[in-house]
Amino acid sequence: MDAEQLLDIQGLKLNLPDGTRLLEGVSLRLNAGEALGVVGESGSGKSLTAMSVMGLLPGLKASGSILFSGQELVNLPDKVMRKLRGARIAMIFQDPMTAFLPVRSIGAQIDEQIRLHHRVSRREARARTVQLLERMGVPDPAMAAKRYPHQLSGGLRQRAMIAMALSCTPALLIADEPTTALDVTVQAQILTLLREIREEGAGVMLITHDMGVVAQACTHVAVMYSGLVVENGPVRDVLDRPLHPYTQALLAAIPPLDGPRPERLPTISGQPPTPDNRPTGCVFAPRCSFVRSECAVRPPLTEIEEGRRVACVLYAA
C-alpha cells in the first residue's frame, strides 16, 4: 500500500539577500490522497514553506530540495514553473477577496484559468466552471458564475476560489489559512469540502495555526517553530501524544471546550526568536521547561517510531 509520494521537501533553506536565514532546513513529505497540516505560530515559516513550493518567492535565495512527483522545484526556471503552477499545483489563500479581480465576474476568472491550461472553447470552459461551482456546493451555480466577488458571501467566495484552484484538477492543493477569516459554521462546511478533495486522490497541504482545523481536515501534521519542523507524524498520534515540548505546550495553551475549567491556562514564557537572533542550538531551548546542556547542539529531526519524527534531545537514543 505504498501511496505515491507527491511532495518531498528536504533541508529547505531560504535566505534574504542580506543573508538572514528565514527557513533553517525544512523537511516534509506528502503522499497523494493525504492531507498534511503545517501548524505553527506567526513567523514560524509555514507560509514561506508553502510559497517555496509554489515558486512564489522573488528575491529570496532557496537551497535544499523540493521534489514534486520526482521533479526538482528549487531554482526551477520561471517558464517551467508557470506551467506547473495552477495546472499541477494550486493554491488557495485566506482572503478570497484579494485572490479575485474585483471588476470581473468570478465565472469569467475561472473560465480564463481553464482556458490558460486547456484548449477549450469559451462555452466548454463555462460549462466546466458551472460544474465545478456546483461540486463545491454553490447554490444556483450558473447564476453565481455571473456574479462579482463582492456580491458573494465570504463562504461562497471561498468556495469559488477553491473551484478556481481545482479547475485544472491539480495533484497538489496548498491551502494557506483557508478558513481563518470565516465563521465556524462556514468553516465546518469548507473543511468538509477539503476532506472530500483529499479523498478523491489529491494531496492537500493545509497551513494553519488552529489545531482543531488540523484534526478535522488532515491525516498528518508537521509542527513548525522558528523556521524548522520540530515534530511531524500522523495527526492522531501527534495530537494524542505530542512528543516535542513545544507541541505539548502549544496544545496545553488551548482553552478546553469541555470538562473542568482550569484556574489559569498554561503559557509558554517569552517569545519566539527573530530570524537574525536564532539560538545556535535547539531553537526552542530558551522557552523550554525541559532544557538541559545537550540542547546547545541543535537536534536533528529524527524518526523515532514508524512515521513519527521529532527534533528533541529528550528522544535521542
Partner: peptide
C-alpha cells in the same frame, strides 16, 4: 448547539455542518 458542534476539535469528528449562510 450548532455553533458548538462547528468548532473543530482535536478529539472528535465534526458532525454534519449547519447549511447555508447567516
Amino acid at each position: 448547539k450548532a455553533l458548538l458542534d462547528a468548532v473543530p476539535r482535536p478529539d472528535r469528528a465534526l458532525p454534519p455542518p449547519l447549511q447555508g449562510d447567516v
